[in-house]
């Protein structure tokens, strides 16, 4: 067999990509291992995050040194992550499908190019700028307009009644997340709609269907799996979003949201918000527990992405189209 140095170099460089994923898993798991054994299942079922007394001498518990009174439970952040993502998707899915239908079928091609740019820009706005806008525009709007309106209309449901507060919280975070997820879902669905074979459309037209009925009855059912895949892709994005959520969520620690206006914290934004305090922990257990959160987020994101890719098949959000 001939030695092919060029191909060998290519293979070696290419294998860096799977190796990077493996390294993330291995090193996060290795670093958080003491926290994993110390926290046990309590980590995901406990709702109290307490760094303990950082100034007293640490004590030995379960064979590891931790600050007195230290307790690491992230159930509040898990709930915050799931709630923000779920509400964001509830808003984003119908809107995205509407946008996708509008862009794919509702426009002449020269207008389509211009308006499609809007969706691309929406995906291009950095998350910290979304956060800035959320801080400067959205939270006042939520506390003065959106929140009171929602309470008037849906106030009979306990989750929508109660104090609206400052505007920072679940609702604001979900709206920002929805905005960030829409371009992902809309672009994927739009591309899928564009690939629907013309036979499918023509058959529907031949049955006497109007243009909208063709979209609604023939095209959307044909791309059903792509829609589900796109939504899961969007979910993956929402679960891991950090900065924008951090800047509008109000940063609740150790209590569960009682209505849609309550402050919350997500797992991803909690990691950033703990930057300073965790590093003051002389035992390092807080930093290791944060690594455990990162590990959980990593595993969740890998699983959601794998499911999304399998469903969307060849369509992928990385392609330059």
């Amino acid at each position: 067999m001939k030695l092919r140095p060029f191909r060998t170099v290519l293979v070696l460089i290419t294998s860096l990509i799977p190796l990077a994923l493996l390294a993330i898993l291995v090193f996060l798991a290795r670093y958080s291992w003491p926290a994993l054994t110390f926290n046990g299942w309590h980590f995901v079922t406990g709702h109290l995050w307490d760094l303990g007394n950082l100034y007293a001498d640490p004590v030995k518990r379960h064979g590891v040194l931790v600050p007195i009174g230290a307790n690491y439970g992230i159930l509040v952040f898990i709930v915050g992550t799931l709630l923000t993502s779920a509400i964001a998707l509830l808003i984003a899915i119908p809107v995205s499908i509407g946008v996708a239908v509008f862009l794919a079928e509702g426009l002449r091609s020269n207008v389509r190019v211009v308006l499609s740019f809007v969706v691309e820009l929406l995906a291009a706005v950095p998350s910290v700028v979304y956060g800035l806008w959320g801080y400067a525009v959205l939270t006042p709007l939520v506390s003065r307009t959106i929140g009171p309106a929602l309470r008037t209309v849906l106030g009979f449901i306990p989750f929508f009644s109660g104090s609206i507060g400052s505007g920072y919280g679940l609702l604001a975070a979900s709206i920002v997340l929805a905005l960030m997820v829409v371009p992902i879902i809309a672009a994927t669905v739009r591309d899928a709609l564009a690939r629907v074979p013309s036979e499918t459309k023509e058959a529907a037209y031949a049955m006497g269907a109007t243009h909208f009925e063709v979209v609604r009855r023939a095209m959307l059912p044909a791309v059903r799996t792509n829609i589900i895949g796109a939504c899961i892709l969007g979910l993956g994005r929402a679960l891991g979003e950090t900065m924008a959520v951090l800047m509008v969520s109000g940063g609740a620690l150790n209590y569960f949201p009682d209505n849609i206006y309550s402050p919350i914290t997500t797992m991803a934004s909690f990691i950033v918000s703990q930057l300073d305090s965790a590093m003051q922990d002389p035992t390092g257990m807080a930093v290791r527990s944060l690594a455990e959160i990162a590990l959980i987020l990593f595993i969740i994101s890998v699983i959601t992405n794998i499911i999304a890719r399998l469903l969307t098949g060849t369509a992928r959000n990385v392609s330059p189209t």
Binding site: L28, T242, F298, S301, T304, R309, N317, V318
Partner: peptide, 30 residues
Amino acid sequence: FGQVVRFLDDVLAGVPSIVLGYFSYVTLVI
């Protein structure tokens, strides 16, 4: 191998950026 890398390439693109940041913090910074 190509199929697997292509797939994992997409997966890597979907990893939340804070996870990448914390991974680097643990491995490179510390």
